[in-house]
Design a protein around this nucleic acid. Sequence first.
DNA 1: CTAGGTGCAAACGATTTGCAATAAC
DNA 2: GTTATTGCAAATCGTTTGCACCTAG
Lengths: 152, 152
Amino acid sequence: MPFDKNRCPNDSHGIESQKILKNANLKMTKKRVLIIDCFKHSNVPLTADDVFNILRENTNINLSTIYRALSALTDSEILTKQTLSDGTYVFQLNGDVHRHILTCKECGKIDYIEFCPIEKTIDDITSKTGFEITGHSLEFTGICPDCKKKLK
Amino acid sequence: MPFDKNRCPNDSHGIESQKILKNANLKMTKKRVLIIDCFKHSNVPLTADDVFNILRENTNINLSTIYRALSALTDSEILTKQTLSDGTYVFQLNGDVHRHILTCKECGKIDYIEFCPIEKTIDDITSKTGFEITGHSLEFTGICPDCKKKLK
DNA sequence: CTAGGTGCAAACGATTTGCAATAAC
DNA sequence: GTTATTGCAAATCGTTTGCACCTAG
C-alpha cells in the first residue's frame, strides 16, 4: 500500500478525529486518533495490516489494538468494512465517497472505483425480498490494463 | 444448509457430471462426480463445508479433497467462487442463473437473489478503467424480514 | 476511582500443503 | 506404468480472545 502517494497535503486532522470519537461515545485515545488519521490521509481503503505498517514506523502499536479499534469504529459506523475476494477485510471512512473494488486475476493488484451502479436498485431489492438493505459490497474481478499488455 | 429442502426430484445427474469433467480435461473420479452432483442438487450456493456435510452421510470423503476439487473446478470455470462478508467462500455452478447474496446483520442468515443489477454497467466500467471485467461479486447486508418483526 | 483501552501471547478456524498410498488413463 | 487424485496430519495466516496492566473521563 503506497502510503506516501496518498498523503493528504494539508493537515490538522487530529482535532477532527477527536470530535469523531466523542460523537460516537468512544474514549479518545492517542492510538485511535492515529488510526483515524491514517484513513483521513489515505484515499484508498486500508486493511488492518496496512494501518499497522503505516503506524509502526513512528509509534509502538500492537496489531490487536488496531483490530479492536477498527471493529469499534465500524460498529459506530465511523468506518465501513468490506471483504475482499481473498477473504481479508478493508476499511474506509464512512460517508466518504464509497469505493468499489477491482481485483486483477493475473497480478492480484487492487484498484478502486468511485462509482456505484447499485444505489438505484436497492429499493427494487427491498420490494422483491422484504430485506431492509443497509449496506452492500461489490467487487469486480478481471484483468488490469498492465496485465492485458503483458498477455499479448 | 437445508439440503433435503433443495433436492432435485428427478435424477441421473451423475452421467452429466462425467461429461463436464471430460470437457475440462479433468480426471473423472467418483468423488468429483459426487461433488458436482451436490451442486446440481442444490439451488443455493454451497461452501466446502456444506458439501462435506452433505457427502459424509453416505461417503468417506476428506475435507481437503473437497477443497482441492472445488479449486480445480473453479479453475476450469465449472464452478464460480464468491467470498461472503465473513471471509468464507461459496461456490455455485457456472452458467447457472447467477445469484447474489443477502446477509442479515441481526441473525447472520444468508439469502440469495437471482437478480443482477450489475451486468448492464460492466461495459461502462471497462471504458472508465481499462480493466477487462470477467466476474463480479455482490453482497448486500441488511435486516431480514424475520428480524425486522422481532425488532419491532 | 472505574470502565474501557492496550500489549502480549496464545487460540481460532477456514483454507492450504507435504507426503505416502491409491486410482484413473 | 505414469500421472493425477486422495487421505491424513500438520502448517498457514488473518483475525480474535484472555488476562494483566494502563489510561481517559
